[in-house]
Computed example of a mutant assay.
Amino acid sequence: MDAAERFEHGESNAVIASELRVARRSVERWRRAWREAGVEGLRSAGPASLPKLDPSQVAALERELDMGPRAHGWEDQRWTLVRVKAVIRRRFGVTYSIHGVWDLLRRAGWSCRQPARRAVERDEDAVRGWVRETWPSGQAPRRRSTRGSSSRTRPGCR
């Protein structure tokens, strides 16, 4: 709508594009729409396409995801975007891009690398034991600084 006021004042496309921080081609397209239909021609027509899944299908997808990856044929309990994409394709016959799957999940309240809900079968005692006993054994041992090592020879590191 700022562009419409500037068109009325006769400002050039280059000046409008610079001040509104948009491409000059966008301003040209806006000016053409403004000439043809006035300010009404600049109003948004809404999203370019309708969502591929309606709200009831998104709810059904969440129920499918709540069943876990094993229920859909995967060995482990990790949901990845590729796996969710496959479930959507199989269940609803709709193809999403990986980015589209991520947007869909984010809108539904899911987060990256962190489950939105805690696993029902989670055993807190087993997790604490694993963190205390198994995890440290997988870490590389700390290197000790020895005579002549870089940590001792750099100036200012005494």
Results as ranks from 00 to 15, higher is better:
residue 114 Q to V: 02
residue 59 A to P: 15
residue 39 V to E: 06
residue 51 P to I: 00
residue 80 T to M: 11
residue 121 E to A: 14
residue 68 G to M: 08
residue 43 R to G: 02
residue 143 R to S: 11
residue 149 S to D: 15
residue 150 S to E: 10
residue 119 A to P: 05
residue 40 E to L: 10
residue 140 A to L: 09
residue 62 E to Y: 10
residue 118 R to S: 06
residue 49 S to W: 04
residue 45 A to E: 00
residue 77 Q to T: 07
residue 99 H to A: 08
residue 156 G to C: 07
residue 60 A to G: 12
residue 35 R to M: 09
residue 34 W to F: 15
residue 108 A to D: 11
residue 59 A to Y: 09
residue 51 P to V: 00
residue 148 G to R: 10
residue 134 T to L: 11
residue 58 V to A: 11
residue 66 D to W: 12
residue 122 R to V: 07
residue 67 M to E: 12
residue 56 S to G: 09
residue 54 D to V: 02
residue 144 R to N: 09
residue 80 T to L: 13
residue 119 A to S: 13
residue 51 P to A: 08
residue 102 W to K: 01
residue 47 P to Q: 03
residue 101 V to M: 03
residue 81 L to Q: 02
residue 122 R to Y: 15
residue 58 V to Q: 13
residue 93 G to I: 02
residue 61 L to G: 11
residue 72 H to N: 12
residue 47 P to L: 05
residue 101 V to R: 00
residue 47 P to C: 05
residue 69 P to F: 03
residue 131 V to P: 04
residue 61 L to W: 09
residue 69 P to Y: 02
residue 36 E to Y: 02
residue 146 T to M: 14
residue 117 R to M: 08
residue 147 R to V: 05
residue 91 R to A: 15
residue 100 G to N: 01
residue 108 A to E: 09
residue 111 S to K: 08
residue 141 P to G: 04
residue 81 L to K: 01
residue 65 L to T: 01
residue 42 L to I: 01
residue 131 V to N: 06
residue 147 R to S: 10
residue 111 S to Q: 12
residue 124 E to C: 15
residue 69 P to E: 04
residue 143 R to Q: 08
residue 32 R to K: 13
residue 145 S to M: 10
residue 55 P to F: 09
residue 141 P to R: 05
residue 145 S to D: 07
residue 51 P to D: 05
residue 101 V to P: 04
residue 100 G to Q: 00
residue 93 G to D: 08
residue 36 E to D: 05
residue 144 R to T: 02
residue 35 R to C: 06
residue 67 M to V: 08
residue 67 M to C: 13
